[in-house]
């Protein structure tokens, strides 16, 4: 295989949580590693690095995507919301509040992905029934088994119980 020492970096500008950030990364750096290692935004989690767990879910140009399966260079110019950009300074988003109220997490490692994923799902207008929500949220694994509490929290926000 071709061996390329010293991969040249490129300037990539991402608007992350409303702020334009320019990083210099080689093409082989994933968006997830860019967020975690280059921008100190470690709220997006690495649970598998292969698109099999959902912990790295971020909202990219309004859509939830897996940040481990895209490269930073591919997202040059994109608008990205990570868990750090959910809710306002000192005020949690209703979904974050609901996750606390419904005890929708235990270890907390899948939580940012669950929240980003469900916010994007709701904003896209998808998930009309509990059964649909369960299917549409199935890309976010929870090993602690908080599944029912997570879905309860999401349904409460969808139903307007948590505004």
């Amino acid at each position: 295989m071709p061996n390329r020492p010293d991969p040249p970096t490129r300037a990539v500008t991402l608007t992350v949580n409303g702020t334009a950030r320019t990083v210099h990364v080689a093409p082989w750096v994933s968006l997830l590693d860019t967020l975690r290692d280059h921008l100190d935004l470690t709220g997006s989690k690495k649970g598998c690095d292969h698109g099999q767990c959902g912990a790295c879910t971020v909202i990219c140009n309004g859509q939830r995507i897996l940040s481990c399966l895209t490269l930073a260079v591919m997202q040059d110019g994109a608008e990205i919301t990570t868990i750090e950009g959910i809710g306002a300074e000192g005020k949690l988003h209703p979904l974050q509040e609901a996750f606390i109220a419904y005890d929708a997490f235990q270890c907390g490692y899948c939580t940012p992905g669950q929240i980003c994923s469900s916010i994007a799902m709701i904003e896209a207008g998808h998930g009309n029934t509990r059964e649909e929500v369960k299917d549409l949220m199935s890309g976010n694994l929870c090993r602690c088994g908080a599944n029912t509490n997570i879905i309860d929290a999401i349904m409460a926000v969808k139903d307007g119980a948590h505004e």
């Binding site: 470690t42 868990i83 606390i100 005890d103 939580t111 929240i115």
Partner: peptide, 15 residues
């Protein structure tokens, strides 16, 4: 409620 809840839901909890 979990005392560390706000840290976990806002991505501030460090692993």
């Amino acid at each position: 409620r979990r005392i560390e809840g706000a840290l976990k839901v806002s991505g501030q909890a460090k692993y």
